[in-house]
Simulated assay, not measured.
Amino acid sequence: MASLLRLRSLSFFLAMVAVVVGTATAGGYYAPVFRATPWKQAYATFYGDETASETMGGACGYGNLFNSGYGTDTAALSTVLFNNGYGCGQCFQLRCVNSQWCYKGSPITTVTATNLCPPNWSQDSNNGGWCNPPRTHFDMAKPAFMKIAQWKGGIVPVMFRRVTCVRKGGIRFSFQGNGYWLLVYVMNVGGGGDVANMWVKGSKTGWISMSHNWGASYQAFATLGGQALSFKLTSYTSHETIIAYNVAPANWQVGMTYSASVNFH
């Protein structure tokens, strides 16, 4: 009887560990799942016009945000949040608070970080230098800003929190570089939305560590032409690691974007 009780206790403990750690991956291992963070205070402004044309080609390297799936629900982050590019792809919920320009009911909108709001050291941090460190600030695409406040308000106090990035399909890899240098922009990242480390594997090589270039791009100085390419990625936030096998065929080309069948949770 005592042995049976111990066995049941062990089974219950293992089940609880599985719940705490996360959900099961295809490989049978339990991976962490990103959780929303507590609400914090910040400020928000906007840039560009209603078309959001000025938000295209931001510092994260996503290029045309309509083609890459991010649309106009985007924001440029102050230096603190941008975190040397590791903040690229992260998703935030924002709502305007304590301002006459807030919409009634303080509606919530969700944006993806696609750009850097650089410091403006010629302006005081509380008067124009809104993105100067150590300020936490969101410079939103105008259509996104207009979902939480009247645009004529200019700058409004907000509450924000990190949330899970819900993406359709797998992670996308946009290739640049040449025969000896592969530069990859990582897009459509789910879960925490971010990437901490990345590796590439050719059909004739082992895993090659890629270094962080800038924004959402990673690079490998290696000759990988004529090989099918696989990628291994670790999330910056959840530390979850996934492998996308045979993402690009052996005849892959620079300038093309290739999609995986896997994504972060």
Rank of each mutant, 00 (worst) to 15 (best):
L5N: 14
R6K: 13
F12N: 09
F13D: 07
L14H: 05
A15Y: 10
V17L: 14
V19W: 05
V20L: 12
G22E: 08
T25E: 14
Y30H: 13
F34I: 11
R35S: 14
T37C: 02
P38S: 07
K40I: 00
Q41W: 04
Q41K: 14
Y47P: 02
S53A: 14
M56S: 10
A59M: 03
G63M: 10
N64V: 05
G69P: 12
Y70F: 15
G71N: 08
T74F: 00
L77A: 09
T79C: 02
T79S: 12
V80E: 15
F82V: 02
N83M: 07
G89I: 06
F92S: 05
L94I: 09
C96P: 07
W101F: 14
T109I: 15
A113Y: 02
N115T: 06
N115K: 02
L116W: 11
P119G: 03
N120G: 04
Q123T: 01
Q123Y: 11
N126C: 03
G129A: 06
W130A: 03
C131V: 07
N132W: 10
F138A: 07
D139A: 08
F145W: 09
I148Q: 05
A149C: 08
W151M: 09
W151D: 15
Q176T: 08
G177H: 06
W181H: 11
L182E: 09
M187G: 05
N188W: 06
N197W: 12
M198W: 02
W199A: 04
V200Q: 03
S203I: 06
S203L: 02
I208F: 08
I208A: 04
S211H: 15
H212P: 02
A216K: 03
S217W: 05
L229S: 09
S230K: 08
L233D: 02
I243Q: 11
A244E: 10
V247D: 08
N251A: 14
Q253H: 08
T257K: 08
V262Q: 08
N263I: 05
